[in-house]
Every structure is written in structure tokens, then in C-alpha cells.
């Protein structure tokens, strides 16, 4: 058998796709999953939510647009038969709305926890047990809790999406990506506060949608 250089072995492909391996000749590639919002993806290195990383979504209050922001990602992952989880959502994730948005409900799990520390712990465990994306609401997350969540995402290859209040914007965060969702003239707009590359950060907010 001849080894073809054009197609790397699957183990290598997997490593490259997980974003944990950098290739020498290229600029470091950031593995990402498209957010499904075209204007936002254009601003993000890798073109979407960073894989194997923690992303933070800051918003003034529940229902500002933060779930609409994550919806295309949830739809794509669950349709590819990957498991996603909501940990400690502030309201009921409404099955009819999720299903209309393309989310496969049989790949969607909700976990209600007694406190933010338990929420972060559960999210960590869910990532390590192979959930592709874990959405966790934990406003009062400790710095240590955030680092552990980031580490769990890194080591599992999954995506951690942490939802917190906009008031946390000034606090330091180990997240690879920080987004802020606000409403302007009645529609949600998302602003990139921090990314791993330089692209997009600090630019003016963009609208959600295709």
C-alpha cells in the first residue's frame, strides 16, 4: 500500500480538525463551527464558534437574543446526531420553537442544577462525556470554574457556551471568544468583544441571521 500525502491518516485529520495540532507551514488554523449567522462568521477567526474552547455570550437579560444566536449551531450538531445540553437555563427551552429552528430534540438534554458551581461542574462532565456543545447559564462563575470549563472543552474537543450577564464584560475571562448580545431598534445585534485572532474584535455589532 502506498501512503498518499494528500490524504493524511484519520488520526491526524482528527487532531487537525480538533484544532489541537498546528501545522508548521500554515498560519495557525482555528477550528470552528459556523455560527450560522453570516455577518458574525465573517468576523470570527475560523469562521464561527471555536471548537475545543469556551465561548462566552454576555447579554443584559434572558431572551435578548442569546438563544437565537446559538440556535443554528444546535440545529446543525443535533442533525448530525451529536448530543447537546442546556445546563441551568433561566427559562424553559421551548420544544416547539426549538423544533421549528431545526433542533433534533432527541439529541437535546436539559439539566437543572441547584447552584452555579454545580452547573459548571455538570457542564464540564457533559463535555468530557462527549457532548458536542454544552450551553451553560452560570452568571456567578468563579475564575477557577471558568478555567476548568475551558480546560474541559479543550481536552474533550467540545464547545462550551457560557451565558452570563453583560455586567461581567469587565471581568477577565479565559474564554477564547466573548460575544455581547444587545438589542438595537428592536432587533438583536451581536458584538465581538474578544477573539483568539485579531479579526472582528471591537468592531461594531452585526445583526443575526443568514
Amino acid at each position: 500500500m502506498r501512503l498518499s500525502l494528500a490524504t493524511p491518516p484519520p488520526e491526524l485529520t482528527a487532531l487537525l480538525d480538533s484544532g489541537r495540532l498546528w501545522r508548521g507551514q500554515e498560519a495557525p488554523r482555528i477550528a470552528a463551527e459556523a455560527s450560522g449567522h453570516l455577518r458574525l462568521d465573517a468576523l470570527l477567526p475560523g469562521g464561527g464558534w471555536p471548537k475545543a474552547a469556551l465561548s462566552e455570550v454576555l447579554h443584559p437579560q434572558p431572551g435578548t437574543g442569546e438563544l437565537a444566536l446559538a440556535l443554528p449551531l444546535l440545529a446543525r450538531l443535533t442533525q448530525a446526531e451529536q448530543h447537546v445540553a442546556f445546563v441551568a437555563p433561566p427559562l424553559i427551552p421551548y420544544a416547539p420553537g426549538l423544533a421549528q429552528g431545526g433542533v433534533r430534540l432527541d439529541y437535546t438534554l436539559v439539566v437543572q442544577t441547584p447552584n452555579p458551581a454545580e452547573s459548571l461542574w455538570s457542564a464540564e462532565q457533559l463535555l468530557r462525556a462527549g457532548h458536542a456543545a454544552v450551553l451553560v447559564w452560570a452568571d456567578a462563575a468563579s475564575a477557577q470554574g471558568l478555567r476548568r470549563l475551558q480546560l474541559a472543552a479543550e481536552e474533550s474537543g467540545g464547545m462550551a457556551l457560557l451565558f452570563r450577564s453583560l455586567r461581567r464584560a469587565a471581568e477577565p475571562s479565559p474564554a477564547a471568544l466573548r460575544l455581547a448580545v444587545r438589542r438595537e431598534h428592536g432587533t438583536p445585534r451581536v458584538q465581538v468583544l474578544k477573539t483568539r485572532g485579531q479579526a472582528g474584535a471591537g468592531l461594531r455589532p452585526v445583526a443575526l441571521g443568514q
Binding site: 448530543h83 424553559i92 427551552p93 421551548y94 420544544a95 416547539p96 426549538l98 423544533a99 430534540l105 432527541d106 437535546t108 438534554l109 436539559v110 439539566v111 437543572q112 442544577t113 441547584p114 454545580e118 455538570s122 462532565q125 457533559l126 468530557r128 462525556a129 462527549g130 457532548h131
Partner: peptide, 25 residues
């Protein structure tokens, strides 16, 4: 999936069965 299952069992034991669910129509 076996790991996943073991974790879900653990979470059920930890938080009680009503605290883990799938949204359904």
C-alpha cells in the same frame, strides 16, 4: 456513549430524576 450513560446516571443520582429531561413535543 457508555461514558455518557454513566454520567447521566450519576447526574440523575445527584440531582434527582426530574432534573434531567429532554424537551419533547
Amino acid at each position: 456513549s457508555r461514558e455518557r450513560q454513566a454520567l447521566l446516571e450519576k447526574l440523575i443520582a445527584r440531582y434527582g430524576e426530574p432534573c434531567l429531561w429532554r424537551p419533547a413535543l
